[in-house]
């Protein structure tokens, strides 16, 4: 419990980001209704659930890319849409799935674009900008690549560059939409360890992850979604149980302690042939 004195603590861990009684969806399709989700301060929150359960939709709502139909999203005690766009971007960084690097842009240029919310017409490259970019590249080990064009990099390097761009934004909150997709297992772990480090240094992280074991291993707080509803929240051992995995994913399994980290580990059972 650190530095909670600045505000009245209603709960033991105050929420940084909250979804309150929100319905989320797109023009013709509602994905979630009456959704309540809380992201505790200082947590590494991971959202899990089967495909099309509303994980990414929830993340889009948390990052203001999607405006709730009803209900609201609250950031640091204030409604998200009452902030200016740049103000949100100074508090909340997002790694979207759809990022495209402009042709021929170099790594340093791309990472430097993360400084946009801190810059103005006259203040385009302050000492602080330079430090933030250099630190972000160092933290993601892309400093050596900094002059190279992004389109020449491998998938793993490229994803690290995008993470560096989000880090350069220097936000206390980070939202990550399936950050490990398309990476091999070594690069996945690499990236997750990086997130764990960020978590240890005081960042609040929210990620959508597909791999349950990785989620259980790195998260401090899990949110399990199914068909747009929150099925369970809590620590990995509270959420990742054989019953819950069966309920949420329809996958019969056993849950054993991970031999390395002692976090819950899901071992799927062979599916009886008759069900297929």
């Amino acid at each position: 419990m650190t530095a909670l004195t600045t505000r009245p603590a209603r709960t033991p861990v105050p929420a940084r980001l909250e979804v309150i009684d929100a319905s989320l969806g797109y023009a013709r399709r509602t994905v979630c209704e009456h959704l309540d989700v809380t992201v505790p301060d200082g947590s590494f929150t991971v959202i899990i659930g089967p495909n099309a359960c509303g994980k990414s939709t929830l993340l889009r709502a948390l990052s203001r890319l999607l405006k709730p139909g009803t209900g609201r999203v609250v950031l640091d005690g204030r409604a998200l849409d009452s902030y200016g766009t740049k103000e949100v971007a100074r508090r909340l960084g997002l790694l979207p799935q759809t990022a495209q690097a402009p042709d021929g842009i170099t790594v340093a240029d791309l990472v430097a674009r993360g400084r946009h919310p801190h810059q103005g017409l006259l203040r385009q490259w302050t000492e602080e900008d330079e430090r933030a970019v250099a630190d972000a590249m160092a933290a993601t080990s892309v400093t050596d690549l900094s002059g190279r064009p992004v389109d020449e990099l491998s998938g793993g390097q490229r994803q690290r560059v995008w993470v560096a761009m989000v880090l350069a934004q220097r936000t206390p909150l980070l939202l990550l939409d399936e950050p490990t997709t398309f990476l091999d297992i070594a690069h996945q772990i690499d990236l997750l360890e990086l997130f764990a480090d960020l978590h240890r240094t005081g960042h609040t992280l929210v990620a959508v992850l597909h791999d349950l074991n990785q989620a259980a291993r790195y998260a401090s707080h899990l949110i399990a979604l199914r068909e747009g509803r929150v099925v369970a929240t809590g620590t990995p051992w509270e959420v990742v149980t054989a019953d819950l995995v069966e309920e949420v994913f329809g996958l019969p399994c056993r849950v054993v302690p991970d031999p390395v980290t002692d976090t819950p580990m899901v071992v799927p059972l062979a599916r009886p042939r008759s069900t297929r």
Binding site: L95, P96, P102, R113
Partner: peptide, 22 residues
């Protein structure tokens, strides 16, 4: 001059640009 600075970020996709406060 004012509109060009946010506009250049839209080249990275709307989501990325929005995340940067555009």
């Amino acid at each position: 001059g004012a509109v060009v600075r946010p506009l250049v970020h839209l080249e990275m996709g709307d989501d990325t640009a929005a995340a940067l406060g555009v």
